[in-house]
Amino acid sequence: MQRIAVLLMVSVMSTGASAQSFTCPIGKSPSCLDYSDKVCSSFAKCVADDAVCFDSFTCNYKGFVCKSVLDEAVEQHDDIVKKYNSLMDDRNSIAQRLTAATQENNENIERNARLFSTLQEAESCVGKALTLEEAQACSF
């Protein structure tokens, strides 16, 4: 009777060992899987059954981003860019007006300097004149 029990025990143990015994090709490693586990190629990405696919170019430099989260950031960025561009347009307009006003101011300074020089020459000429004819002969 003991022989039958030992024989039965040895056969059960050998059945379990042979059921879990397997080999892998060279360069591959074995793995134990739980219920609902998936096997993916090392060149592929495994995703959950309820995963959602997005259009191309929905990734940023940090990695994958859900498009719905990215939309708000893009809108804020676009608003900031528009505001920046508007401010730059205002700045450029003011800079152009300042350049034009500076040029006009410099021209006025040069004109005033010429007029002042002409006035000094006229005063000097008239001041040196001894007669009315000499004063009228001054050119200005």
Rank of each mutant, 00 (worst) to 15 (best):
V52T: 12
M1K: 05
K83E: 15
V74Y: 07
A101Y: 04
Y61T: 11
K28Q: 14
E110P: 01
I80A: 15
S41W: 03
I109W: 01
S86D: 15
T102S: 14
N85V: 05
V69R: 08
D71Q: 13
F64I: 03
Q96L: 07
N85W: 01
E107Q: 13
F22G: 15
S124I: 04
K82S: 12
S42H: 02
C46H: 00
S139A: 12
I26P: 14
R111M: 10
Y35N: 15
L115N: 15
M88E: 12
S29P: 02
S139P: 07
A129G: 00
T23A: 09
I26M: 14
T131P: 07
S29V: 07
E133L: 00
A135E: 00
E133A: 08
P30T: 03
D78Y: 06
F43C: 09
A113K: 14
T102F: 06
F22C: 15
A129C: 07
G27I: 00
Q120G: 13
E121F: 02
L98M: 11
S29K: 11
G63D: 06
L132G: 14
I94D: 11
L8A: 14
T15G: 13
V52L: 03
T23V: 06
G63P: 08
E72H: 10
D79P: 07
G27A: 03
F64G: 08
S41I: 04
C59T: 07
A137F: 02
D78W: 05
L33M: 07
T58S: 09
R91M: 11
V74T: 09
A48F: 02
D90N: 12
F22P: 03
D49W: 02
E104A: 15
K62C: 09
Q2Y: 00
A95P: 03
K83C: 08
V52S: 11
S117H: 10
L70W: 02
L115A: 14
Q103G: 08
A17F: 05
Q20I: 08
S124K: 05
M13H: 04
C24V: 02
V69T: 09
D37H: 05
T23G: 12
R114Q: 15
V126A: 09
L8E: 13
R114L: 14
V6D: 13
D79E: 15
N92T: 04
E123K: 10
A73H: 12
D34T: 03
L98C: 11
S36N: 14
Y84C: 12
V6I: 09
C40I: 04
C125F: 00
E110T: 11
I109P: 06
A122D: 09
A95C: 05
E133F: 01
D78C: 12
A135P: 02
A135L: 00
D37L: 01
F140C: 07
A100I: 04
K45H: 08
C46V: 01
S117R: 09
A122Y: 00
A113T: 15
D50S: 12
A137K: 02
S139M: 00
V10I: 09
E104R: 14
P30V: 05
Q96F: 00
K128N: 15
D79K: 14
M13N: 10
A44K: 06
R91V: 01
I80Y: 12
C59I: 04
D90H: 00
S31D: 04
Y84P: 00
E72C: 12
S86Y: 10
T131N: 04
E134M: 04
Y61M: 06
M1P: 00
A5D: 10
E121L: 08
Y84G: 05
